[in-house]
Computed example of a mutant assay.
Amino acid sequence: MRVITFGTFDILHYGHIRILKRAREMGSELIVGVSSDALNENKKGRKPVYSEFERMEIIRSLRFVDEVFLEESLEKKREYLIHHQADLLVMGNDWEGKFDEFRDICDVRYLERTPSISTTSIIEVVKSLPKMNDGQ
């Protein structure tokens, strides 16, 4: 079974690892669409910390990920699913119901997110840390 998921995966954290591992356990292959820099900026109103190339390399390096591609548009989701011959689309439950329209071409499952962790919250914590002087 070919499983596919999508995400920005900026500042990779434990929640990302958990959802990717659980998605992989649901099939024989895991394909990951990494949001392009432009798509992320449109969705979240900010540029990612790491470039799309860097984020793709990070995700590609995970032993339970079989294939990585660049997701350039939310409107192409159906096209990506068909092109990659996905049997199952897995997303976090923060997207619950948003991809049900694809049930005509593959199964769709929403997995519970890891509580109390998100890239946005990590960025806010880092921003709130006192700045260090170069000489110290």
Rank of each mutant, 00 (worst) to 15 (best):
M1R: 12
V3H: 05
T8P: 06
T8L: 06
D10L: 04
L12G: 05
H13L: 05
Y14L: 14
G15K: 09
H16W: 11
I17W: 01
I19H: 01
L20K: 08
A23S: 15
R24V: 03
E25Q: 13
L30C: 08
I31Y: 06
I31M: 02
S35F: 04
D37T: 12
L39D: 07
K44L: 14
G45S: 13
G45P: 12
V49D: 00
V49R: 03
V49Y: 14
F53R: 14
M56I: 10
E57Q: 15
S61W: 09
F64P: 04
V65C: 04
V65F: 08
E67Q: 10
E67G: 00
V68D: 01
E72R: 15
S73C: 07
S73A: 13
E79D: 14
L81V: 05
H83M: 07
Q85H: 13
V90D: 00
W95Y: 13
G97F: 04
E101T: 07
R103Y: 04
R103F: 01
I105N: 07
C106N: 07
D107E: 14
D107I: 01
D107V: 01
D107C: 02
E112Q: 14
T114M: 10
T114V: 14
S118D: 03
T120K: 12
S121T: 13
S121H: 08
S128N: 13
S128A: 14
K131I: 08
K131D: 01
K131R: 07
N133H: 09
D134N: 12
G135I: 10
Q136V: 15
Q136L: 11
